[in-house]
Structures are given as C-alpha cells and as structure tokens.
C-alpha cells in the first residue's frame, strides 16, 4: 500500500518536472524566436525605410525633370518646337443650328 503511494507521488513529481522542463524549453525557444523575429522585423523596417527614401528621391527627381522651364528648354532647343505666331491661330466661326 505504502509503496504504491510512494510510486504515485514520485510519478507526479516526474510529471511536474517534465512539464516544468517543457515550459522552460518552450519559453526559451519562444524567446529566441522572438529575438529572431526582432532581427527580421528590423531588417524589413530598414528595407521599408530605404524604399520610402528611394521613392521620395525618385519623386523629387521626376518633379525636377518635369520642371516646366526645363521642359520648355528641351522642347524648343532640342526638339525645335516654337510658339505659334499670331497668324497661326485659326479663328473658328460656327453658324448656329
């Protein structure tokens, strides 16, 4: 009777020790995973930041290239366009219905 009781107590102890071990193992592995995700997240955040900066730079570059003074210069000097003379405007007279 006594031996049975002793056996069941030690069984409970083993079970508790097992659960404690599992708990500690899970906790430490989760902690490691958390740190690992932290690194990954930082990497992604840095990449996002860089991309945002790149987007801003490209937007600024696009706007600079579309500067109307520059466009006018390119159109007139490089493409040979010019403003129409007064006589080149055509007046349209449309007779009503």
């Amino acid at each position: 009777m006594k031996t049975k009781k002793k056996q069941s107590i030690s069984g409970i102890f083993v079970l508790i020790a097992f659960f404690v071990f599992i708990l500690l193992f899970t906790y430490s592995s989760l902690n490691l995973k958390n740190i690992d995700y932290g690194y990954k997240m930082q990497k992604l955040l840095q990449a996002q930041k860089k991309l945002k900066e790149e987007i801003d730079k490209l937007r600024a570059k696009k706007a600079t290239l579309l500067n109307l003074e520059r466009v006018e210069k390119v159109v007139m000097k490089e493409l040979g366009y010019r403003y129409p003379e007064a006589e080149q405007f055509i007046k349209i007279f449309e007779i009503g219905k």
Partner: peptide, 19 residues
C-alpha cells in the same frame, strides 16, 4: 519627422524633403 510635401492643385510636387 519628414517635413510634409507641398503640392499644387494638380498634385505636382512643389516642395519635397529627401534624405
């Protein structure tokens, strides 16, 4: 913080901050 961008009514950039 990044300073806000200024646009015209057509959405053309008039002032922008870059790194």
């Amino acid at each position: 913080p990044k300073r806000g961008t200024i646009y015209d009514c057509q959405g053309e950039v008039l002032a922008i901050s870059v790194k």
